[in-house]
C-alpha cells in the first residue's frame, strides 16, 4: 500500500469524527422528554372535552404535516375551517386555536423540539402565549 501510514491516519480521524455524537454523550444523563398538556386552559375543560383536533397518536405523528396543510389552506386558499375526523369544526390558527389550549410553549413545543434538535421557524413570526414568557422571566 502506498502511503499506508497516511491512509490509516486519515481513517482514524474519520472514525473519530463520525462517532463524535456518541462519544461526546458518554457519561451524560439520559434526559427523558416529558411534554406537558396540563395547562390551566385544558384543565378547565370537562374531562370528556379534553381532546385535541385529532387523536393524540395522530397529532404526535402528524402535527407538522397538519400545520403545513393548515397554513396553505388558510393563506393560499382562504379556507379557515378544519373539519376533523369526528365531523367537528375548528378555526385553523396556530396562534388563535392551538396555543389557546397549549399555552405552555416551553413545556409543550420546545420540550421535544429541543430534544431532537429541530428548530421550526414558526415562532420567528407567530406570537407565543404570554404566560410562557412570564414564567421564563420568573425562572
Amino acid at each position: 500500500m502506498y502511503d499506508g501510514g497516511k491512509i490509516i491516519f486519515g481513517l482514524i480521524i474519520f472514525l473519530v469524527l463520525v462517532t463524535l455524537p456518541f462519544t461526546l454523550s458518554i457519561g451524560k444523563d439520559y434526559t427523558k422528554v416529558n411534554p406537558k398538556i396540563d395547562t390551566p386552559e385544558i384543565m378547565k375543560l370537562p374531562e370528556t372535552e379534553r381532546k385535541c383536533v385529532e387523536s393524540k397518536d395522530f397529532m404526535r405523528k402528524e402535527h407538522m404535516k397538519m400545520l403545513i396543510e393548515w397554513r396553505d389552506a388558510v393563506v393560499r386558499d382562504g379556507k379557515t375551517l378544519y373539519v376533523n375526523s369526528q365531523g367537528k369544526t375548528f378555526n385553523m390558527s396556530l396562534q388563535n386555536t392551538c396555543m389557546q389550549c397549549h399555552s405552555n410553549k416551553s413545556k409543550f413545543c420546545d420540550e421535544c423540539h429541543n430534544y431532537v434538535k429541530v428548530k421550526p421557524y414558526c415562532w420567528d413570526c407567530h406570537i407565543e402565549p404570554k404566560e410562557n414568557i412570564k414564567k421564563e422571566a420568573a425562572l
Partner: peptide, 15 residues
C-alpha cells in the same frame, strides 16, 4: 373512516 369524504378544509360560512 367514512368521514374522510367530507371536505376537510372549508371557508367559514360568514366569510
Amino acid at each position: 373512516e367514512i368521514e374522510a369524504f367530507v371536505e376537510k378544509y372549508k371557508k367559514a360560512p360568514e366569510a
